[in-house]
Design a protein around this nucleic acid. Structure first.
Lengths: 97, 97
DNA sequence: AGGCACTCTTTCCGGCATGGAAAGCGACGG
DNA sequence: CCGTCGCTTTCCATGCCGGAAAGAGTGCCT
């Protein structure tokens, strides 16, 4: 295993985004609506946070028109997973766990 | 053991305060200056964050004039430790760890 | 074609948190 | 009485945040 360097990441740390990353870290892919419901935020708020994660290169947004419905699915990128893992490692360090 | 209820706490979550709580959780008591150096913030910023933690009832501030020097020592209160632990539990839940 | 619904996006806006700089302040020591 | 130490408080500029509402792309229905 590669040694993971604990590193605080403000983009990941904000509550809504931490949740989003946590969800995505567990499932490979998740749909916009599911994330919105899980995190319990409005469409606009989720959209804005996802955008930030996307711009940071942490989340990949895929839009597809499946079964005549627009579907936006989200997934952590490699960088996103790395950032999340590193951030969690840092939280662990801070928590002294 | 009492089941610890994971609970997100915004007061604890802010980066500087999370660090402060993490430090205090490990040592019972720590001096202002030491915390300031560990967290790497200015006096004023630390003072402001400590004040917030104090007002939340999470940190106890003791001032003493020892050896002709003013010493301010900080310590987590019971409530502070509970809040910190609960918050960490929540972070763990979010992180899926 | 036109209208409507669905699914996000973007804009607008007010409010709160944050940090740096600097002034304040109480307790000593000289 | 002045200067210093050790925080505290004030002032200020900036940025993030969420809610509401308007926008926009796509497909369905009549």
């Amino acid at each position: 295993m590669t040694a993971l360097e604990p590193r605080f990441d403000a983009v990941v740390h904000a509550p809504p985004r931490l949740q989003i990353c946590g969800l995505l870290a567990a499932v490979d892919t998740m749909e916009f609506a599911s994330v919105r419901d899980a995190v319990q935020v409005s469409d606009s708020v989720l959209s804005k946070h996802v955008k930030q994660l996307e711009e940071a290169g942490y989340v990949q947004v895929r839009k597809a028109t499946i079964a005549s419905r627009q579907r936006t699915s989200l997934a952590l990128t490699k960088a996103g997973r790395a950032a999340f893992d590193a951030h969690v490692a840092e939280l662990r360090r801070i928590a002294g766990v």
